[in-house]
């Protein structure tokens, strides 16, 4: 039993001396301001350096619009594919026992330990013009590297674990009991999935999708290797930012960057809302 409430009790025993506390808080706030908040503000300040009109012009040039369109299309293809993969992987891993399960989980996490540039390189070696598979595909009019499919594959590679990693711990914890109950009540596979499983995992799924989307729209290293950087065709927003920046078109580069930064802020906002509201339904302990 506890006669007292932990939160309201002043606890001199389980905390540090006042001075140490203040120093630690001061250090943390200062470093966060310099490391996180300052760069964020710098993006918007640089974008608006020559006023709103210049910034708007940067965003509406044909190349910029093409880059935005490509980024949106890539995300629109990659994110649903990743969601399907994440659900399938989580279903297989948490609802069945099979040999090599631990190994499969390791493989799903593999992209976290591979440099995006190496991922891009691997795709070039697999599908590039000087590999037999790439040559064969090009003969059949299917370009992968330096074209849209390559960008898709590169983005898929780097975002691969996002949804699965959110779902697996949640579904592990929820166990199989509810699905088995539905089974005894005569429900079929898809009915069980849509009426029992999906409602239980929807917030965790949304969380994973959110993170996946942020990475998909922002991926640079892997895409840079396979895109070929053809203006208006294979330049995503981050690639476009690099090109503009290297051409000293700072305002245009930062305007595009500001658009992506806004997207990041929206992502963080939604993510925080999800965490505050549905903390118990998310695998917060494994989040990142």
């Amino acid at each position: 039993m506890s006669d007292t409430n932990l939160m309201t009790r002043p606890t001199p025993v389980t905390t540090e001396p006042r001075l140490a506390r203040h120093i630690l808080i001061g250090t943390v706030v200062t470093l966060i301001a310099a490391l996180l908040f300052a760069p964020l503000m710098a993006v918007f300040a640089e974008a608006l350096r020559q006023g709103w009109a210049a910034s708007f012009e940067g965003l509406t040039s044909p190349d910029a619009r093409a880059a935005m369109r490509l980024t949106l299309i890539v995300a629109a293809v990659v994110v649903p594919l990743n969601a399907v993969f994440g659900i399938a992987a989580a279903w297989a891993i948490t609802r069945f026992d099979f040999r090599g399960k631990a190994f499969l989980i390791t493989l799903i996490d593999l992209p976290f330990s591979v440099s995006p540039v190496v991922a891009g390189l691997a795709l070039v070696l697999l599908f590039g013009a000087n590999s037999w598979l790439g040559a064969w595909l090009i003969d059949h009019d299917l370009r992968i590297v330096f074209a849209f499919p390559g960008i898709l594959l590169a983005t898929l590679f780097v975002t691969f674990p996002f949804v699965a990693r959110e779902l697996i711990p949640v579904m592990m914890e929820q166990g199989r009991a509810e699905e088995e109950a539905a089974l005894t009540l005569g429900a079929g596979g898809w009915r069980i999935f849509f009426t029992v499983t999906l409602p239980n995992i929807r917030w965790a799924l949304l969380y994973g999708v959110l993170l996946c989307n942020a990475r998909a729209m922002g991926e640079f290293g892997a895409v840079a290797v396979v895109s070929g950087k053809i203006r208006g065709e294979t330049t995503t927003m981050p690639i476009m930012i690099e090109m503009l920046y290297n051409e000293y078109l700072s305002v245009a580069a930062f305007s595009l960057a500001a658009a992506l930064a806004l997207l990041a802020l929206v992502t963080l906002l939604l993510k925080s809302l999800l965490e505050w509201r549905y903390a118990d339904l998310l695998a917060i302990t494994r989040r990142h």
């Binding site: 943390v28 706030v29 966060i32 996180l36 908040f37 300052a38 760069p39 964020l40 710098a42 993006v43 640089e46 993170l211 942020a214 990475r215 729209m217 922002g218 991926e219 640079f220 290293g221 927003m237 981050p238 690639i239 930012i241 690099e242 920046y245 580069a253 930062f254 960057a257 992506l260 930064a261 997207l263 990041a264 802020l265 992502t267 963080l268 906002l269 993510k271 925080s272 990142h288």
Partner: peptide, 23 residues
Amino acid sequence: IDAAIDLPFALPTAVAGIALTAL
């Protein structure tokens, strides 16, 4: 600050790169 910790996950790396350089 708690919400902002994840900014590096949400902000595209190229954006972070040019922003840090600008500063």
